[in-house]
Write a protein that binds this DNA or RNA. Sequence first.
DNA 1: AAAGCGAGCAACCGCGAGCGT
DNA 2: GACGCTCGCGGTTGCTCGCTT
Length: 271
Amino acid sequence: MVRPPCCDKDGVKKGPWTPEEDIVLVSYIQEHGPGNWRAVPSNTGLMRCSKSCRLRWTNYLRPGIKRGNFTDQEEKLIVHLQALLGNRWAAIASYLPARTDNDIKNYWNTHLKKKLKKLEGGAECQKSSGRQQSYRSISKGQWERCLQTDIHMAKRALCEALSIEECDGRSSITRPSAYASSTENISRLLQGWGIAPASSASSQGSASTSRCITSPLEPLESLFGLGDSARESSSEPPFSLLESWLLDVESVGNGQDSFLDVAIDGAGELF
DNA sequence: AAAGCGAGCAACCGCGAGCGT
DNA sequence: GACGCTCGCGGTTGCTCGCTT
């Protein structure tokens, strides 16, 4: 089966949007609300494909978008979430409602990736030269404390989840209540960082075109790759992976140099 | 002052998921 | 269950602008 083009290539305008086009798009969405993007070009007369309209709205015109420099807090949050979630920019963006996934992705690729690389390089240098005070050790301390707290809480939640499973003799995947109980506990992982997922669509009441968090458990479902399909189809308890990761991390021991590396690497593999 | 270069960011593209028929 | 349509995501591209030479 050949995938049809998302839009006719003929007569479709590309490139930067003009203010006039923005006005047309915004006024249309104000009237009809976002969604049904396929109909937007034909109804507005915009010579843009539906995808382009959606993207323009999502990344630029949508109300409540914060533009400009990222704060330190936001930066740390992104780094933390990236370590946990990987390159799931939409999931990360759900914890920074005022930022778009595209923005975060760009910021990561242009600023943070570079920054972290620099830090890692610096840390290697310092490590090899035997100096104790390094930039990394400063940030590492903060990271470790948070991670240790997170891991401790995750482990407790995991134990709870596993004990529920054992009592019941069934996987928590098939038991929503057990699943909810455990994930709610693990959600404290993120609360410690003051992270609150976007609980609803944008302030305009529009169905945000970004995937919205509809359940308090969704961040964790996302975190552990436990979407509905995973819950329904997976035959393996999801916490087994988490458990082995936690064991790996714990076995390294607190306060050791490799603690952070193991935690981050493990999280990267896990998620 | 002008050309070259690199960083940053907006936009595009391809793919996969979800949903309705 | 198969198929087609629509939407959303993540990777990538290419344009713009500021800095350097």
